[in-house]
Amino acid sequence: MRRTRVAARSSGQPRAVLGFVMALPPLLLIAVFAGLPIVLAVGYSLGHTGGLNSVTASYAQHQHVATSGWGTFAAYREMLATGRFRTDVAVTVLVTLLSTAVVLVLALGIALNLRLRGGRVAGAIAALGVIPLFIPVVIASWAILTFYSTDGFIRSVFAQVGLDAPALGFKVVTIVIGSVWTSLPFAVLMVSSGIQSVPDAVIDAARDSGAGLLRTTRSVILPMAFIPIVIATTFTAIGVLGSFTVPYFTGPNSPRMLGVDIQNYFAAYNQPQQAIVIAVTIFVLASGIAVLYIWANFRSANSKDL
């Protein structure tokens, strides 16, 4: 017995080492190509301009240099003191919340209609909801702009009958429309699959117990599809929060979303340190959403354990 245990241990150790070696390449890849640049960038935003940051620091304008060992928050203070930046943060959060809410409502509507009513029309609507997945965002952005802008399709049609439709091009609402367009397909797929996987019998059981369709949806279907709904919500929110193409093409010059700000500070203003401060801000906002995602996954793993 003892011999067997010793043998198992001696054969177990090389296996563990082998497993670690096999897992090493992706770990190294992440550490070198993602971890290291993040550490360097955060260090640079705290004023560490030497070492591997020295090349960036050599051409950057208006940078703050660390005077103490750990660094300085001067770049952060500068950005937070800028009224324009604070407005952009607020607009970014607003667009994210609005777009996510609209996407969620539409995805739930499409998925519930498909689940509870079914039929060809519901199927066709669900299929239509996925179409934007196959249209590149840059093309969709231009299409949305020309559709809603001052000289766009909507206003032209209204003008034919002597009406003056609102011009929606280059406005915050245009970004919301574009974000909903680009985010909807994934949300529809995710939420539909979650709602479709609720077994017929549990829905029948709720109705048999006296619940109408609304109550069945609220008390049985939504709670049972809760995890995919949360995952779809977090993915949508993080996607909109960090979006660039839609706000860049369809949004106004002021206020702007943070994704566009990063590009401007980095390229147009040649202020990479301030661009990194914006990136860190987006990351902090996204972390809040990511906590929700991790919690949902944790709950999902726990419920599978039952």
Binding site: P199, A201, A205, R207, D208, G210, A211, G212, V220, M224
Partner: peptide
């Protein structure tokens, strides 16, 4: 009448309990 308004109660083959 729809199922929610019938005076019957059903036990399903798969039990159909609500897991949450």
């Amino acid at each position: 009448l729809p199922p929610e308004r019938r005076p019957s109660a059903m036990v399903f083959q798969s039990y159909a309990l609500w897991p949450h």
